[in-house]
Amino acid sequence: MLITRVKKKDAILSLCKGKTLLIACFGCKEVHFEEKEYQALKEDLKTSNLNISGEIQLDYLCNDDYTNKRFELHKKEIDEAETIIIFSCGVGVQTFAGLIPGKTVLSGCDTYVLPGFSGFTPSSHDCEQCGECMLGFTVGICPVTACSKGLLNGQCGGAKKGKCEVSKNKDCGWERIYNRMTVLKKDDLTLKKMIRVRNYNK
């Protein structure tokens, strides 16, 4: 799942030329679009003498059928602008830029990823899509994501009191695996079976 954070003013300003059109995608704004920060940046850009020729708010910019239709609706504003800044995730920016390759399209946001693929509530579980799922061996806790180092062959020894050395907020993935195995009264034979070199070609 993707979330966005609005870029700093300086990162955008130096790239803008001439009349500039702002396009903000509010499709996922529900939880993950920094609406207030966007409004603040807009005001900031205005006072920094950026020639803002207009603003369009829309949703689901990543859907190219809809985005295409919206070109027609906002043709005049888009044609007039020399620079277009898109406030959306990277997919939205690419979709838009790909549909009008002749125009300077800038991204106004940085995109981050949260665990979970569907819907909009991030999951507490992450999946790295490694293509060789080991969850059947590891009592349903993923060593690739739950262990900061993605180790497949047991804990590194760096954890203190169950917490990973990377952050005090993160539990050691391998201790979690061990603890659940104790609950399920499983022996570690399956773990021994599991260990093989990861195939990054999958």
């Binding site: 990543c62 997919v91 979709t95 990823v113």
Partner: peptide, 13 residues
């Protein structure tokens, strides 16, 4: 990562 659509564009986040 894809967006909320089935388009080919993907983002590395």
């Amino acid at each position: 990562y894809h967006g909320i659509s089935l388009n080919p564009e993907k983002c590395g986040a």
